[in-house]
Write a protein that binds this DNA or RNA. Sequence first.
RNA 1: GCGCCAGUAGCUCAGUUGGACAGAGCGGCGGCCUUCUAAGCCGCGGGUCGGGGGUUCGAAUCCUCCCUGGCGCGCCA
Length: 637
Amino acid sequence: MVRRLEDAVRAAAAAAGVPAVDATAEVPPSADLGDVAFPTAFRMAPRLGRSPRLIAADLARALGELPEVRRVDVAGAGYVNVFVHRGAWLERARSGPDLGAPDGVHIVEHTSINPNKAAHIGHLRNAALGDSFQRILRFLGRRVEIQNYIDDTGVQVADVALGFIRLRGADLAEVERLARQPRFDYVCWDLYTEVSQWLESDPDGPRARREALHGLEYGEEPWSSIGAAISAAICRRHLETMDRMGVRYDLLACEKTILRLELWESAFRLLRDHEAIRLAEEGKNRGCWVMDTDLAQDGQKVIVRSNGTVTYVGKDIAYQMWQLGLLDRAMRARRFHDYPDGSTAWITTDEAGETDAPPFGNAALVHHVIDARQSYPQKIVQESVARVTSDQDRARTRHFTYEMVSLSPATAAALGFGGSSEEGGAIEVSGRKGIGVKADDLLDALTDRAATEVDRRNPDLPEAERTGLARDIAVGALRFLMVRVTKTQIIAFDLDEALAFEGATGPYLQYAAVRAARILERVGRESRPHSPSPPADLDARLDRLSAQEAGLLWTMMREAATVGAAAGQAARAEDPHVLARWAYEGAQRFNNFYHRYQVAGEADGNARELRGFAVEAFLAGHRTALDLLGIPIPERM
RNA sequence: GCGCCAGUAGCUCAGUUGGACAGAGCGGCGGCCUUCUAAGCCGCGGGUCGGGGGUUCGAAUCCUCCCUGGCGCGCCA
């Protein structure tokens, strides 16, 4: 719609003697200034040698001819402000955003926690970002596959396996027994910090760790079985934790499978044949397969060590190439977890796969949700993909980068992570040091906090219902917390702030939705998921209201219709925060309306109808946005 | 040394990709619950947008040089 106006402006500019001018539309700061604004006259002024105001007047005359235009103003030093025919505008907006044609499978890889300890707040940010992004892509019409990379043969699992054997004297049966505990991940959390300290202090540490890691990679006992038991049990725990906040997966992609099915060997042949890597015959990397690249500090990045083993980056290259369908190998999968709604989380396997497993991989595009510390290795991987394919293909594997979560000084101190000699900076979360807030602990604390409020406000509700409300509110608070700031901003996690449910918080967004739903109930309107059809003669009916009310109602309607555009912008920016801000601003606008105007109690039929419609339109957009952010809407609050 | 990120109100952060007077939340002060839920609303106070220079009709936004903080730059993962 806006495009048609832009085309008209461009045509008018060309007629005035300035062809190919940038005629991008803007949204005026307030509704009384108009619906669409063009600063185009400013751009034309230098070329024409006339004042922007006079040029703007000419543009305004041309725009005034268009059927969708109700009125055109020239404002300020030369803005052209367009007022549209509001009913027709909304009717056209209902057809939805311009959805790009699906271009094959779009993989979003997120969470990817080492399966050796409990998830913490840093992992929650990853999962919340990845899941919201995934929901947005799906909404925009993409075919999405959610993968969760499981490093089940890495040092972190090796360390915990070593801890059970050396520090606990446990055998496989004992580990399996412990793994059946409800929060086995907490047991591992503590053991992991314990074994990390032991590794640093015991002279036998480095050797023991090498042995454990080698055992995992090459399937030697007891490391292999104990490692597999730990990793499987922890993966189940992570799935439970993430399910609490509405995050689910299609496939757990295991490193062990990548090794056993020889995906690396396939990737290696590809790299070697395209001369993306070469055997270094001299220098400090003699005997290694290296990639020559300016990205590396000394011009060479080692991919295969001189002892023949593959580096971390090498394994990631194999994985990403498999995701993109570049390898002559396939992964097999079996069922790992069935969700209540009938969907399934699959897990890769080097044994026989299940015959009805979906065909995973072969993606047109892959987003890797990984924190900013990994941007260097991610660049290396992208470079390797480009070298065996093309520069276009480099763009098919994208690093969805975000900054980490640290602890605010106050929270760090309250939890006893004071540090040794601190002047009060934020403290980095560290699984190895046991510094952090566990995801389930935070969810528990949020749920308790929410339950206190729910009990106080709704003492007469059955307990089961109150519990459900508390859970929804806790999830809403958590998910909004994780996406309310830009992903490139470090989150200084503060417990008191997280537990506050006032102001710019998830519950604020939920509260607006609950209130809107209540109004619709009162006036007998349905709360539909899609934009409602506007009343006939919207322009005439709005004109019968005060200018102030008409402005507010129209802004609510107009903005509600932009949810698809906001989702598209979030997708392009690769940041759900765009949508979170959109939803928050909408909630603010609604709350402002709520306190100013009655709906059910309004005697004037025209006002009641228009206000009811505005609420219905608001809720339709708001509901969509909250759904894309994974924020549930409680029945009441 | 090189690279990435951040620097905006006392604190935590937005700022629609160069536009209209720089906004919100928290905290502070003052108001609003016989009317659809006060997890809310309204008002007040609070700013050299890290600093200098430049481009432009117009800069928090772009260029350049500095300053400060965080992270990264292994045959570790």
